[in-house]
Amino acid sequence: MLELIGITKVYPGNKRAVDGVTLRMEPGLLGLLGPNGAGKSSLMRIASTVTKPTSGQVLFHGADVVAKPDVLRRTLGYLPQDFGVYPNLTSREFLGYLAAAKGLSARSAKTRIDELLQLVNLTEAVKRPLGKYSGGMLRRVGIAQALLADPQVIIVDEPTAGLDPEERVRFRNLLSDLAADRVVMLSTHIVSDVESVASDIAVVDQGRLLCRDTPEALLRRVDGQVWELVVAADRVAGLQHRFLISRLARTAAGVRVRLLSPAPPGPDWVRVAPDLEDAYLAVINFGAGQTAAVR
């Protein structure tokens, strides 16, 4: 349905933001994970036709959307990481304008906007100008505009930033629902955003695709390599030097340390079930083809 083939993006100054990435997507939710500056947003902008790649192809149902972007844009819902709104317009006016820009008929636009405002819980705020909205409310307006034209492809870049925990859960569920018969591409550096909803996870770093797998397959990569122990606080620095620490939690008895290691780090360490964050850290730090290694 949507294919990114050999995508490379080189910015002025020879900064290679995306380096030969190939991703083929069918209906379902693809979570794009990577640290800040990994090239996720560049890749998302290329997939959404906002930026032209330096080389490579973007195909939608086989059509080249780099040459003819409107083929995809007509059926695309895109929520960029950073966006603005017209501050003196209300959400209904703003969405009305965007619906017209998408070519929706007047009747369809009205019905759709009413439903979307209800969906994103903004019905009580429709008369307020957008300049008076909070960050989370504006992000919900952004989500609503992405869904205006019943898109077949939804590309959302760091969509849950600024949302409160309840809204995050709600939005994740919404995307999961949409992904049943649409391509949904979600980028984030927060693993929990994709943990429960992604059918596929791609990890990128320094512009390169490190791996693409199902969540279960990613977990299998670090199965048996995650360990936990409560240690004295003064031991943490030494452990951080030797192992990849995935979590630290202060407790009354000391610091609960969770780390990755192919072998037991010591006699009292307890092997625990890995989660996606452990797997992600292992891929980022040790590469896709290797298991966790002692530093």
Partner: peptide, 29 residues
């Protein structure tokens, strides 16, 4: 991302149960 705007926004509490998006009719153009 993660930023807000100036001004005071009265909170609008999200309801956990949202209408199912897939039930929305496809828009006409």
């Amino acid at each position: 991302s993660g930023g807000g705007h100036h001004g005071i926004a009265a909170p609008v509490r999200p309801e956990v149960a949202a209408p199912a998006i897939r039930s929305l009719p496809a828009p006409e153009r």
